[in-house]
Amino acid sequence: MMTSIEDLAARIPDGARVALAPDYSGVSMATVRALIARGAKDLHLIGVPSVGFQGDMLIGAGCVATLEAAAVTLDEYGPAPQFNAAIKAGALKMIDGTCPAIHAGLQAAEKGIPFMPVRGIVGSDLLTHRDDWTIGHDPFDEEDGPIVMVKAIRPDVTLIHAPLADCHGNVWIGVRREMMLMAHASRNTLVTAEEIYDGDLLADERLAPGTIPGLYVSGVAEAANGAWPVGLFGRYGPDDAHLRDYLQRARTVDGFASYLDEFVHAPKAAE
């Protein structure tokens, strides 16, 4: 169960469908750097429901073939430069969705059923570009009008960062339970944790309800400050100066390359 960040990155094969959390949840930037360092290719990222800096960096580094998400957002930091550049260059296949449809697709996978009905969406152009969404009817009430059904989303891997994990693979995520849904729906869940908890997280009644049980988790690596330069809920905020420096550099090909050289390829730069 316990392993290294590099090993987690090695266990995400090229072409894998990888579920990622938004920047305000748990993002394993330490593993993102390791993925870029190992030259990962053709990843299919699934933002649950959006991606931020980790998506922008992986796209810029050429690791991503497809992005499925409701949005790419850097919040107050503005547009995502490498995402926008990749779209402009036609280098990224974007599967545009909407937040509740992504949650619903994962919920279908969680329950082992093929699809899930979702409210709304009827009349949105999103629908016309999705072959994994369709319109059906309520079988119990034909008068209820059209309802959209979305196919189950079954990621190969969920990659997250959490405040606590123990040596049994139990991972404490508190109220950030989109990560619970992601773990339930995915074949494998790989985790970096801020701290390794000395004991069994499921044995503490206060912690157990916010804990992903180890049965869903196949690898845990300790990574203090593992969400850096993005923040981690309840622990630390984003590294504002660093993120602004990233945005400045990521506007150009050379600038982005210099960022990767300094913080990804240079050994131990982030630690």
Partner: peptide
Amino acid sequence: NLVGIGDYPETKVRFPGSFGSAYLYFL
């Protein structure tokens, strides 16, 4: 429109994405 300007998917200007709009606008 939270997706982009131009003939999707070949957008000339790309916006962040639809977020939850396609659902919440109805509900």
